[in-house]
Computed example of a mutant assay.
Amino acid sequence: MATENKYYPIKIAAAAQDSTLKVNHTCVRVKNPARSIEFYQKHFGMTLLGSKDFPDMKFSLHFLTFPKEVGKTEQGQPEIFGTSGVLELTHNWGSENDPEFRVNNGNQEPHRGFGHICFSVADIKKTCERLEAEGVSFKKRMADGRQKDIAFALDPDGYWIELVQYIKDTEEAPRKDIGDKFNHTMIRVKDAEKSLEFYQNVLGMKLVRKSEHENAKFTLYFLAYGVPSGQNSSSIEGVLELTHNWGTENDPGFKYHNGNEKPQGYGHICVSCNDPAVLCNEIEQRYGDKISWGVKFNQGKMKNLAFIKDPDGYSIEIVPSGLVL
């Protein structure tokens, strides 16, 4: 890793100084929303914050989270975009009736990119035993592979759900059950240095943990908008995990699948704050054509939001915390 920033050398003030910034949600496309919503409610105890149909574009959005106190908008609706740990399920109408339709889960060649979402729990062994008894499929059980302290469950579309335990004797609080958390979203990145500069300098995230695995030749970087004092990073929500497989940065032809090109699956993460217009304007002014936009702020069909792209082409939605669907 280089010691000097060379890709995005200026830390954006609007991001560095905005205490309202948070990783709000992660979007994945699903074939059958009724099936997926039931799965996350029944097996993980998530609650449906709200849904929205878009008839002109023939898709629907469904927002789930673990039970928590969520603020209200001026209209009295749950403040979906003002909290962290939200899972957005996007349904393109008709996919549930197409026997050939499959989502890309991001873990199969040649379309690897997005890896998984991660739920952290107080007692992983107990959680895994319950899920198996309920008939949930697993990609990896705790007994499989080298790492015995994690597991990977599978949702109805084949997306991987990592399960980790946040109560650890070797780390700080929490020491008791504080409920299940939507801890992080993992994406693979080609050039760790470039991606770290983007997420830290452009979007204002902080590197909260790094895990190097020399035997398997990969490194994990965990970023967030802050960890409350006395808590470990696996016990909070709104974390982004970047996975770097060593050597990809030196291959000019190497590219990860961003989830939005065919075949589709993963959609984006979403960053929310009180005034995204200020943030987006400063990014545009500082970096110009170094930054790629899917949609600039307030310029798309859906107003009051933007989609920025990271160095690998993954989309990041930027919205106001009080956005009403």
Rank of each mutant, 00 (worst) to 15 (best):
R112S: 07
F114A: 04
G115W: 04
H116A: 05
I117P: 01
I117Y: 03
F119V: 00
V121I: 11
V121Q: 06
D123L: 05
I124N: 03
K125Q: 14
K126I: 01
T127Y: 00
C128R: 03
L131Q: 06
A133R: 15
A133P: 01
E134H: 07
V136A: 04
S137H: 11
F138N: 11
F138T: 12
K139N: 05
M142V: 05
A143V: 12
D144S: 10
R146S: 13
L154K: 14
D155P: 00
D155Q: 04
D157K: 06
D157L: 08
Y159H: 07
W160P: 00
I161N: 03
V164S: 12
Q165L: 00
Y166E: 07
K168G: 00
K168E: 14
T170F: 08
T170L: 03
A173F: 03
P174E: 06
K176G: 02
I178S: 02
K181F: 05
K181A: 04
T185D: 07
M186L: 14
K190L: 13
A192H: 13
F198I: 09
Y199R: 12
Y199H: 14
V202S: 08
G204S: 03
G204K: 10
M205D: 13
L207W: 05
V208C: 14
V208F: 02
V208Y: 00
R209H: 15
E212V: 14
H213E: 15
H213W: 14
H213T: 11
E214N: 06
E214C: 05
N215T: 08
N215M: 03
K217P: 02
K217I: 07
K217E: 13
T219G: 07
L220Y: 14
Y221N: 15
F222L: 10
L223K: 11
L223I: 13
A224Y: 04
Y225L: 05
V227L: 01
V227C: 07
S229G: 05
G230V: 07
S234E: 10
E237K: 09
V239H: 06
E241H: 11
H244S: 13
W246C: 08
W246I: 11
G247D: 11
